[in-house]
């Protein structure tokens, strides 16, 4: 298990990976990836129990993570590689022909660490619930985690899943919503307001928690440790996590513009100057 300074170093390195990966192919989604960097390192660095050396699709007796908002694949790939799922140098194949690191994650090319394809939004919560039900049938007491974008919650299937999980006491499952308040067309509030997510999930019967600073890794770890206390108590758990889209690169913050665009050469240099290399570039 890694300490906070180590995890912070990894976050900086992953941010370098993200901007370099999307720059190299002039496409991809840096904004949400940068915003969720601390979340991923909290999960893969401390919160989850998993075995990257012996990856199996079934994942019995280990915690499982499902990325529902698949477009933030750069952060997912960087953290999976640096957690030992596949060679770090493979990050340089991102979005290139014949890669296992497809634009959106897939099981199709057998990339260790990925258990479902995602990209078309709104499907990951149902999948996570299915995996959680499977664990219950197998008397497997490990936990299922998932991440969703706030804009993604505009998809109706999310609410079918939310209703099901509460009604059927799927209480071995912690969902997280990345509340960065932005989506492709602009602010979530303007595109299609979600109202109070806290009230909505509570009304659906979930145990609701909030993380006020989703770019503070110590806070995230602390929140997940508290969330685990509610495992097995009859309700699914959701964490509403406020993040800053583009966090770590000054010109990518405070706007939705970097949701799905890559930096040019000059912009990359500027980003990297703000993100010193820590554990080594791929």
């Amino acid at each position: 298990m890694m300490d906070i300074p180590q995890l912070k170093n990894l976050c900086t390195q992953t941010r370098r990976d993200i901007v370099r990966m999307v720059h190299a192919v002039a496409s991809g989604h840096p904004g949400g990836s940068l915003g969720c960097t601390e979340f991923f390192w909290a999960l893969y660095g401390q919160v989850m129990k998993y075995d990257p050396a012996r990856f199996t699709m079934d994942g019995k007796n280990e915690d499982l993570f499902f990325l529902s908002n698949g477009h933030i694949s750069p952060v997912f790939y960087s953290v999976l590689a640096r957690s030992g799922y596949f060679p770090i140098k493979e990050l340089n194949t991102f979005r290139k022909i014949n890669t296992r690191l497809q634009g959106h994650p897939t099981t199709h090319d057998h990339l260790p660490g990925v258990r479902i394809a995602s990209g078309s939004l709104g499907q990951g919560m149902s999948v996570a619930i299915g995996a959680a039900l499977s664990k219950k049938l197998n008397n497997d007491n490990t936990i299922v985690y998932s991440l969703h974008g706030d804009g993604e919650l505009q998809e109706g299937q999310i609410w079918e899943a939310a209703m099901y999980a509460a009604a059927n006491k799927v209480d071995n499952y912690i969902a997280t919503v990345d509340c960065n308040g932005r989506q492709i067309d602009g602010d979530v509030e303007k595109v299609l307001s979600l109202g109070s997510l806290h009230d909505k999930f509570e009304a659906f019967g979930w145990h609701v928690m909030e993380i006020q600073d989703g770019n503070n890794i110590a806070d995230i770890i602390d929140s997940f440790e508290r969330a685990k206390f509610f495992i097995g108590r009859g309700s699914p758990i959701v964490i509403l996590m406020k993040t800053e889209m583009g966090a770590g690169v000054d010109y990518m913050m405070g706007t939705h513009k970097w949701h799905g665009s890559a930096p040019n050469d000059e912009q990359l240099s500027k980003a990297l100057s703000q993100l010193p290399e820590t554990v080594g570039d791929y």
Partner: peptide, 18 residues
């Protein structure tokens, strides 16, 4: 319930675990 999209997703998830 009357929620077919969720049913397909749950089914996909249940395969994970055998």
């Amino acid at each position: 319930g009357i929620a077919e999209a969720n049913m397909i997703g749950i089914a996909a998830g249940m395969t994970i675990g055998g």
